[in-house]
Simulated scan of single mutants.
Amino acid sequence: MRIARFTVDNEIHFGAVEGAPGAETVTVLAGDPFYTGVHPTGQRHGIADVRLLAPVIPRSKIVCVGRNYADHAAELGNELPTSPMLFFKPNTSVAGPGDPVTLPSWTEEVSYEAELAVVIGRMCKDVPVERVPEVVFGYTA
């Protein structure tokens, strides 16, 4: 199931996206699927008729893994770390599809790349590998 966060008629909603590429519709969900589950309301919109937003606004922070892509590390002249290189981003760093990315005026070098985000759907810690599917709400790019 594909879940989107969007605005239409100046209201923000979550919705379930269905349909073939180019003909997608989004069905409005009741409430926030993180807290209330996925409950379609029956109200539908064409995907072209809504403004897509960032899929979620993180409720705390974004945990990132750096230098985990060998080709990109080599391109920058960096070695791959022997253990995960973790860093945090504030939840305000999330942007929606097509939203502008504002760079500080002092920026001299920007490295852009695609990112895969795993959306954790509940509080958890030290989750064993076999139980990971229980805490993952979904993925986004």
Rank of each mutant, 00 (worst) to 15 (best):
A54S: 11
Q43T: 15
V8P: 05
K61I: 01
Y139D: 11
L103G: 02
A4G: 14
V17N: 10
E11C: 05
K125P: 00
K61V: 01
L29M: 06
A70P: 10
S60N: 12
F88D: 04
G46H: 13
A73L: 12
K125I: 04
V38I: 15
P84Y: 13
R2N: 12
L29F: 04
F88N: 08
V50G: 08
V65L: 14
V129L: 15
S111I: 10
V101L: 14
R44L: 07
V28S: 08
T107R: 03
R59E: 12
H39D: 09
A117R: 09
E108A: 05
L52T: 01
E11I: 02
I47N: 05
Y112G: 04
V118G: 09
A95C: 11
A74I: 06
V110T: 14
T36E: 09
S60L: 05
T41F: 09
R5K: 06
A73Y: 09
L53E: 08
F88W: 05
A23N: 13
G37K: 06
I3V: 15
R5S: 01
V63K: 04
E130Q: 14
A30I: 00
A30N: 10
G138I: 01
Q43V: 12
R59C: 01
F87R: 05
R2H: 14
R67D: 05
H13T: 02
K125A: 14
G31A: 08
A48N: 12
E24K: 11
I120P: 07
F6R: 03
M85N: 14
Y112C: 05
P21Q: 11
G96W: 02
T7N: 04
A114G: 14
V119S: 04
A30L: 08
L52H: 02
V65W: 07
Y139H: 12
A74Y: 11
R131W: 09
R5P: 00
V56P: 00
E109W: 08
V65Q: 13
P81E: 15
S111L: 08
V132C: 15
V135A: 11
K89S: 10
R5A: 00
K125C: 10
V94T: 06
V28N: 03
E134I: 04
P21T: 08
L29N: 07
D9T: 11
A20H: 09
F34N: 01
A54D: 00
F14T: 00
V56C: 00
S105V: 10
V63T: 09
